[in-house]
């Protein structure tokens, strides 16, 4: 059996799990329970899942496992945040611009983030987006988001 370990630095994640478990169980209290029989209703399962999470989270706070935790390199988030941002932007502008516009914008940013130069990024994003549109919309008949002017 794997050991529970001793010492370490992941108390933080344990606290987050603990907090999530509590919030989850609390949210379970607002379920509008209708008719049920056999003593177990739709909310009890939520409570059970929540309490296991709380218990294990608590256990992990007390006895964190031993593992080499590299400090998070926050510098890297200068690369990651643009990705996060561009996906959010994608889902916001998709209903207006349609697939092609939104995807080309997103792909240019992604290719740049992974080290392409402007020319490469633009070429790559336009080609891949067009190929994707061709494959899905024209060959497979699956809409990828039409945008305002094609409605």
């Amino acid at each position: 059996m794997k050991s529970w370990g001793e010492g370490g630095a992941d108390r933080l994640s344990a606290f987050i799990i603990l907090g999530f478990g509590l919030a989850y169980g609390y949210a379970g209290k607002f379920i509008q329970v209708g008719f049920y029989n056999g003593d177990i209703g739709p909310h009890h399962w939520i409570f059970m899942v929540a309490s296991v999470l709380v218990l294990l989270g608590f256990g992990l706070v007390l006895r964190p496992t031993q593992h080499q935790f590299e400090m998070e390199n926050w510098e890297d988030w200068r690369m990651r945040l643009p990705l996060v941002g561009v996906i959010i932007i994608y889902s916001v502008i998709l209903p207006y611009t349609g697939f092609l516009g939104a995807m080309i914008v997103m792909m240019i940013v992604v290719a740049k983030l992974f080290g392409a130069n402007w020319k490469q990024a633009t070429l790559c994003s336009v080609t891949l987006s067009l190929l994707c549109l061709l494959l899905f919309d024209h060959l497979l008949g699956i809409s990828l988001g039409r945008g305002l002017w094609l409605k």
Binding site: M103, F114, G115, A116, C132
Partner: peptide
Amino acid sequence: PRWILMSLITMLCVVGAYT
């Protein structure tokens, strides 16, 4: 090159989730 692969994968993820 890695930027082509990663762009392709990012696109497939977003498209996959949307469809």
